Amino acid sequence: MTFSVSWHTLLDELDDLPEGATLITPLSHKRFRVTDVQEQRVIIDFEDRDEKRPLQRDQFETLYRRISDEPGGFELDRLPPDADPYPAVLSLHPRFEIDEDEGVIIEKDGPTTSQLLNAEPASETDERSEPDLDVYADALLLVDALERHDVATLSEMETDALVNLYTLLSDVQRNANDLRQDVADVLLNRLHHDRPVSGPFGSVQRTTRRNRSLKDEDEVLAKLEAEGIDRDRVTGIDRSKVDDALEVTELAESDVYDIEESEYVRKADVDEEVKETRLQGLKEQLAATEGEEAEELRQEIEDLEGRIDELTSFRTGAEVHE
């Protein structure tokens, strides 16, 4: 198939785009719309800035030739800077597809996908789904706690409320970090070189961390001595040997260590059953609709939460034995 035929097929696909259709670039993940389709160029408009940009036919032809020359697909990170709208638009052609995991755009004989985002908003009547994630459940509980208490004046909050707040913050932090790492593992395969990739809330960039660890001690000392460096200049006190020595001498730990102690709060236990009960109440609140049944459900939830508060509220030892 000649480029001229492919070009006019692409123009036909662009003419058939629904109004407001949005595409996304594969490298920088910037959103844009096609605002005009002409014989020699395509005009696009980026969402995040007031900028119209022409995409020239001859540049599409160059990209087309490079894809045709690469059986395994053309590597996207070989594109010139700011050229990733071209493969995004070309992906609308029924024979071209972007594989972000592999970082290529490839020509295929079968069905393909495009960089076109769903232009139709989700129906308000669609059933609401809840992600089966620990961080979601804990975040929901945390939001509820933040709405119930004035955290701007922590010193005035009751101790039990502070304990609950600290526990939830700790759980959200741990579970969010686990999910963050899972997201990072997937993103790593989609980021190319040092090009930032942007989203609505921010941007990320692939970076390289350099870690160092010494080789075998004898090998290092031998190489340094060969360069005229006395081994006494680079050898130090082995902490593990000092600890062993303390065990067989009358020296105190403070005789050989500078010790600085600090106190901190540590989460000791989590009552998962209470959390699950509260969470279920919140989910029912979210799912409740208007009407008499909804009002009865809300009242039942309030009564249940009141009993939970009474059972889990903080009491001193004196109060317990009264």
Rank of each mutant, 00 (worst) to 15 (best):
T2D: 15
F3Q: 01
S4P: 01
W7F: 02
E13N: 07
L14T: 02
D15Y: 13
G20K: 02
T22G: 03
K30L: 11
V34Y: 00
D36V: 10
D36K: 14
Q40H: 13
V42E: 00
E51C: 07
R53C: 15
P54S: 06
D58F: 14
D58L: 12
Q59A: 15
F60N: 02
L63M: 01
R65L: 12
P71H: 01
G73R: 01
L76S: 01
D77F: 05
P81D: 15
P81T: 14
Y86C: 01
L92P: 06
R95D: 14
R95E: 15
I98K: 01
D99Y: 08
E102G: 10
E102N: 10
V104Q: 03
T113V: 07
S114P: 08
L117I: 02
D126S: 12
P131I: 03
Y136I: 05
L141Y: 01
R148Q: 15
R148V: 10
L154H: 07
S155F: 08
E158I: 04
T159W: 08
T159A: 11
L162A: 09
V163N: 10
L165V: 04
L165P: 00
D171K: 07
V183P: 07
S198K: 15
S198T: 14
G199I: 08
V204R: 04
Q205V: 10
T208N: 07
N211T: 12
D216F: 05
D218G: 07
G228W: 03
R233K: 15
R233E: 15
V234I: 08
R239K: 11
S240F: 13
K241C: 10
V242L: 02
E247I: 14
T249P: 00
E250L: 12
A252I: 04
E253Y: 11
E253P: 02
S254W: 05
S254N: 08
V256T: 03
V256S: 03
Y257V: 07
Y257E: 08
E260G: 07
S262Q: 13
Y264E: 13
K267W: 08
A268K: 06
A268N: 13
E272G: 13
K275H: 13
K275N: 10
T277G: 05
R278A: 11
G281T: 05
G281K: 05
K283Y: 08
A287R: 14
E290I: 09
E293Y: 05
I301K: 03
I301S: 03
E305I: 09
R307E: 15
R307T: 10
L311V: 09
T312Q: 12
S313N: 14
S313G: 12
E319V: 04
E319K: 04
E322C: 06
